[in-house]
Simulated assay, not measured.
Amino acid sequence: MKKSIFIGCLAMFAIYACDSSKKSSSEEESDSTAIEEVVEEVAEKITGPNTLTAKEKEDGWKLLFDGKTTDGWRGYKKETFPAAWNIDKNSLHIQGSGRGEAGAQDGGDIVYDKEFADFHLKLEWMVDSAANSGILYRGKEEYDYIWKTAPEMQVLDNKHHPDAKLGKNGNRQAGSLYDLIAADPQNFKGHGTWNKAEVIAKGNNIVHIQNGDTVVQYTIGSEEMKSLIANSKWADIGNENWGDIAPKGYFALQDHGDDVWFRNIKIKEM
């Protein structure tokens, strides 16, 4: 009861402090977002990570990870959950194997066992030094790796992993649409620190948000995307129709052979 009262009072105070009567609609929207973030942060400090606020529940958000079990998750093209993944620091953790994309023999990418079409996804990730991973969405289980059908929001230690300097103009750095569109601004907080990621998918329109900033926007099937794909690694990966991203598919977390943690994974279908 005290927790609910404290959070409610904090929200009321923040709203009052904004004095919306003197602000434009864009300023009010920014203030509202900031207030929601403060409330979420305070709620997490009180109740711990991997929880939903009363407002999130009311708005239709769903937790995809409870911090205690792997319920709902399985290996890509598997019925079981890979042993190389565990729960550590109240997070889904891929234990580094040092084997790169091949991952551990008992590892591999993991998927949430439900396909999503239009959604707003939120999560936090943390990488070890020189670690690499990815957040993939609308993927299909057709090839040996889900990235052969799914767009990827890059998860990377920009400072220490060599992939940060490959690709074009930073399009393999954290938050980017991997190998296609560089995250701008580039606001990765560093390894050993939690970074916030969001993906909003509405029809063919996709947005990546990293640490509160919109860093990537694109339209599936657009002429711009066709041109980008033709000049990227996706042009020759054994799936000549890579740009035809499915309107509905699986959300996955990548095993790239490094230590990476994911928590506060939540989704709202639209």
Rank of each mutant, 00 (worst) to 15 (best):
K3V: 10
G98K: 10
G72S: 03
D109E: 12
S227V: 12
G72A: 02
E152D: 11
P185G: 13
T33M: 14
Y178M: 00
T33R: 13
I220G: 01
R263K: 14
I229F: 13
A131K: 10
T214P: 04
T214Q: 11
I229S: 11
G221W: 15
E40T: 06
A183W: 06
V207H: 06
G134C: 11
Y112K: 07
D244Y: 00
S129G: 13
I146A: 00
E115R: 15
G167K: 03
G98A: 07
D19G: 01
A102Q: 08
P185R: 12
S222D: 07
G170N: 03
E224N: 05
F251S: 06
L253R: 02
G67R: 04
T214G: 05
K77W: 08
A117I: 06
A252V: 12
K148M: 14
E40K: 05
I206W: 02
L123A: 08
E28N: 05
V38G: 00
K68G: 05
E101K: 09
A252Y: 10
T80Q: 07
A104T: 05
I110A: 04
A252R: 15
N90Y: 10
G72W: 05
G100Y: 01
E223W: 13
K3E: 12
G139F: 09
G221F: 15
N90T: 11
I135E: 01
K89F: 05
I46C: 12
V39H: 06
I206D: 00
I46V: 14
Q105R: 07
A246R: 01
S30F: 01
I245H: 03
I7V: 15
S20R: 03
V215D: 14
K148D: 07
I135D: 01
Y112Q: 08
E115A: 14
K165E: 15
S222Y: 12
K122F: 15
S4T: 14
Y218I: 00
R263H: 08
D31I: 03
E58G: 14
D31A: 15
N86Q: 08
H256C: 01
K62M: 15
I265M: 15
S26T: 12
A43I: 04
